[in-house]
Design a protein around this nucleic acid. Structure first.
Length: 873
RNA sequence: GGACAGUUAGCUCAGCUGGUAGAGCACCUGCUUGACGUGCAGGGGGUCAGGGGUUCGAGUCCCUUACUGUCCACCA
């Protein structure tokens, strides 16, 4: 027989099993065409070279579901991804190359991509190793990279199709430009932060008069790009200016005064300078009024060549210079402090500059409609439900999606320009010549937004656009598990992509978990330095402990605080389980053969009933995605029922001289442990695997063991009730002894007064062991001297413990009086309920019946206490 | 400005469709009880943020107020 090490050492247990699982290739599950497969979509973690706590959360929740479904016999697939192209990734690759003294420009595009690939494979591979360490059962033989050939094919096909249908277009729009990363970023990638700034009130002279118009700005340097000023058409203060123009100070350009209802009359002076090239709203105004677009900022946020003396100045330097010049020229009316929201790049924190630029866009309106519909009609369900509002809100207000990025690391846009005839061609295969005029073409330099390819993940990883077997069998997928922070970036885009390209919603359920925060409730972030490395936690406490921590006490959609203490508690539980298992195995003979127990005692039936109920409720919880509750219940059973009570009770029979008795105890110890381990396995895969496979008669792996099912035959209501009566009495006696300061080892005689002797007689050995009873006798009516006996009272029985020398009469009276008060309180509230006409007539029958029973039990207990008090005199 | 959460024991949080409040940690008292001190037994501690409503009955449903947080939008 195998043995468990004396000391539970998570790292050696976990190391052993993750290596074994990899070798054994368990994750190519059988496909049963009759059975619906269960597929989980896994978010592609970024290349960071290491797993962070957010991933650990994602992956743990996903893995729990995958393992659970596999055990239920589903073919469950989980395709891991390792990275996608992103600004962050490219920045990391560039930084990495910088260590070698290289820049991407030195290398050139092709060499750069080669390097990046090598690096990515190396680190992507490392992520997979780390996931395994966490116990994730992903099908790592299927590692896919979004940038690989298969996915590229999907991206090209999608781009081509959207372009042909007119859903992708190239155009001038205001985009968010990060002068540091030198790329456009999408609206979703901009983070706004409150910054203290100034409000400069400027005076523009009206052409052909000596009047001035006052307006305010937070970005005075953009005034060089003003091509109009605007007032509200109904603003009577400015009616006389309609059709006139102003002279732009410093540059002396005459620009029109236009009327546009976009202007808020209440705000500032009611006059707005219009800079179409550098403000989204101004751009719109410009389009409406046919204004010229004048760019005054370069890609690295310096003033352009057109800016005369300011050309080449950094935007902030220019701001100072321009303000100074305006003041000198008498165009500055006043300056007031003003705090406003400034957009910053989510990656580098640089203030982004809205800039007009030629970019590729996806028209969202035609795509959003069906995607909203899919959630409305329930084809896609969010868990918890409230997140659908978040989704609708975004989907309904979304603007066209800027998909081009000025990066190298990504899917290059398959658009080709002919400089001769001006034709733009989009092609899935490389194009050398213009299909229209035959002249050489050049390919667009830009790459696609990372989410463009990530949005195809659910089907591109299964082989789409080829009609593969995988795609046929596993698509659409069942569940997506992710944090709420990514609903807009990824979830919504997967939904409309799935609907558009495959005509199917890519998944049925979106399970949203919260974010992991630090012990103070702050978001884990690099700049704060409060990020906790999951691998360090694993080293310290084990992957099982970390996994359990990430589910227990958390509820879908709500954030959780991460602290060492919690992981420690989980580790303690693992240790407890380990030792319990060790105890069981220590007590098995060499030739132990699992089988049916010869006989079942009251306690056996009690524990089997409990376990049976547990199976039912844990299954229900998991089906409803209540992972935290499920895990909590299994943990409670193992610790509170199996260890604290059942093992202790089994010890009595293990020592029995009757071989059949001892064997029965062993059988139940082993079988109950096996079931409990099975239920716990999705949450703590390593320790359960180690223990399970060490048990006699166990199969090769617990991972593919059948998930237990509720069995009505195993419901032993009567024995359960009987045993609970005994437990109650034991607890009452323990409390009594503790209160009276009796040394735990001291045995006492005990007289049990009860109307229902059977369970107490059956459990007399338990009374002896756990209530430290010496000689136990039963009676229906205690006739002895109550004054010399301490009394433990439950609704079913009274235990008299004659300990004349220990009894302090007053103390005993006080104790009983206190108990009486408590009991009376309970009783009266229950009595009030039962006396309530409304309750009795309107509440469901079983609730009323329950209440009656509880009331009767409390009444019995109270009567007993009163007797005891009376006897004490 | 809009939306959504949260407010339950000293701390961190559970509490499913309404049926007399739970866990872990911390605290107090005992215990070297032959698996486990990463443990065992016992204990104290909560008007479930305030107010109102629906109901026989509300931590749970509705309204409202306050505070905290998150997301979205954004006026130069």
């Amino acid at each position: 027989m195998k043995e468990l090490a004396k000391i539970y050492d998570p790292s050696s247990v976990e190391d052993k099993h993750y290596r074994r699982w990899v070798e054994m290739d368990y994750f190519h599950t059988e496909r049963d065409p009759e059975k619906t497969p269960y597929t989980i979509v896994m978010p592609p973690p970024n290349i960071t070279g290491q797993l962070h706590m957010g991933h650990a959360m994602d992956e743990t929740w996903q893995d729990i579901l995958i393992r659970y479904k596999r055990m239920q016999g589903y073919a469950a697939l989980w395709v891991p991804g390792t990275d996608h192209a992103s600004i962050a990734t490219e920045a990391k690759i560039v930084a990495k190359m910088k260590e070698e003294g290289l820049t991407k420009q030195d290398l050139g595009r092709e060499k750069f991509l080669e390097r990046a690939w090598d690096w990515k494979k190396q680190y992507g591979g490392r992520i997979v190793e780390q996931l395994k360490k966490l116990g994730c059962s992903c099908d790592w033989k299927r590692e896919r990279f979004t940038m690989d050939e298969g996915c590229s094919k999907a991206v090209l096909k999608v781009f081509k199709r959207l372009y042909d249908e007119g859903l992708i277009y190239r155009g001038e729009r205001i985009i968010n430009w990060c002068p540091h990363c030198k790329t456009s970023i999408s609206d979703a990638e901009v983070e706004y932060e409150e910054q203290a700034g100034s409000f400069w009130h400027l005076k523009y002279p009206v052409a052909g008069s000596d009047e001035f118009v006052e307006l305010a700005t937070t970005r005075p340097e953009t005034m060089l790009g003003d091509t109009a000023i605007a007032v509200h058409p109904d603003d009577e203060r400015y009616t006389h200016l309609h059709g006139k123009s102003v002279i732009l100070p410093l540059v002396n350009r005459e620009i029109p005064i236009v009327c546009d209802s976009y202007v808020d009359r209440e705000f500032g002076t009611g006059v707005v300078k219009i800079t179409p090239a550098h403000d989204p709203n101004d751009f719109e105004v410009g389009v409406r009024h046919g204004l010229p677009i004048l760019k005054v900022l370069t890609d690295d946020a310096r003033m352009t060549e057109d800016c005369g003396k300011y050309a080449g100045m950094d935007r902030y330097v220019a701001r100072k210079a321009i303000v100074a010049d305006l003041e000198a020229g008498g165009y500055l009316a006043s300056v007031e402090p003003h705090s406003h929201n400034v957009g910053t790049c989510y990656r580098c924190g640089t203030t982004v500059e809205p800039m007009v630029s030629k970019q590729w866009f996806v028209k969202m309106l035609p795509l959003a409609g069906p995607a909203i519909e899919a959630v409305r009609d329930g084809r896609v369900k969010f868990v918890p439900e409230r997140f659908d509002k978040h989704y609708y809100n975004w989907m309904e207000n979304t603007r066209d999606w800027c998909i081009s990025r000025q990066l190298w690391w990504g899917h290059r846009i398959p658009a080709y320009y002919c400089d001769v005839c001006g034709e733009i061609s989009v092609s899935e295969t490389p194009l050398a010549a213009c299909p229209k005029c035959g002249a050489p073409v050049r390919r667009d330099e830009d790459t696609l937004d990372t989410w463009f390819s990530s949005a195809l993940w659910p089907f591109s990883t299964l082989g789409w656009p080829e009609q593969t077997e995988d795609l046929d069998y596993f698509y659409p997928t069942s569940t997506l598990v992710t944090g709420y922070d990514i609903i807009t970036f990824w979830v919504s885009r997967m939904i409309f992509s799935g609907l558009t390209y495959t005509d199917k919603a890519p998944f049925g359920t979106v399970l949203i978990h919260g974010l992991v925060r630090d012990a103070q409730g702050r978001k884990m972030s690099k700049s704060l330095g409060n990020g906790i490395d999951p691998l360090e936690i694993i080293d310290q406490y084990g992957a099982d402990a970390l996994r359990l921590t990430l589910v227990v006490g958390s509820t879908p959609g709500n954030d959780m605080r991460f602290s060492d203490e919690k992981v420690k508690a989980s580790r303690n539980f693992a240790n407890k389980l380990w030792n319990a298992a060790r105890f069981v195995m220590m007590n098995l003979p060499e030739d132990f053969a699992p089988g049916a127990p010869a006989s079942l005692t009251m306690a056996d039936k009690w524990v089997l009933s409990q376990l049976n109920t547990l199976v039912k409720s844990v299954t229900e919880n998991l089906d409803k995605f209540e992972l935290g509750l499920a895990a909590q219940k299994v943990q409670d059973f193992i610790w509170g029922v199996y260890c604290d009570w059942y093992i202790e009770i089994a010890k009595l029979r293990l020592g029995s001289e009757d071989a059949a008795e001892a064997d029965s105890a062993r059988q139940i110890l082993v079988s109950a442990l096996k079931t409990a381990l099975t239920l716990l396995h999705p949450f703590m895969p390593f320790i359960t695997e180690e223990i399970y496979t060490a048990l006699p008669g166990a199969s090769d792996t617990l991972m593919l063991e059948k998930w237990p099912e509720y069995d009505p035959e195993m419901d032993y209501a009567a024995e359960q009730e009987g045993f609970e009566k005994v437990m109650d009495l034991i607890k009452a006696v323990r409390t009594l002894r503790a209160d009276m300061g009796v040394h735990p080892a001291k045995r006492t005689t005990m007289i049990v007064e009860t109307a229902d002797k059977a369970p107490f007689e059956a459990g007399v050995a338990y009374l002896a062991k756990f209530a430290f009873a010496g000689e136990v006798t039963f009676t229906e009516r205690y006739e002895g001297d109550a004054k010399g006996a301490a009394q433990a009272v439950t609704h079913a029985a009274r235990a008299f413990i004659p300990m004349a020398e220990l009894i302090d009469k007053e103390k005993e009276q006080a104790r009983l009086a206190k108990e009486k008060e408590k009991c009376e309180k309970e009783l009266s509230s229950m009595a009030a309920k039962l006396a309530n006409e409304g309750f009795v007539s309107k509440a469901p029958a079983h609730i009323v019946e329950e209440m009656r029973q509880k009331h009767a039990a409390a009444a019995e207990k109270l009567a007993k206490i009163e007797q005891s008090l009376a006897a004490l005199g």
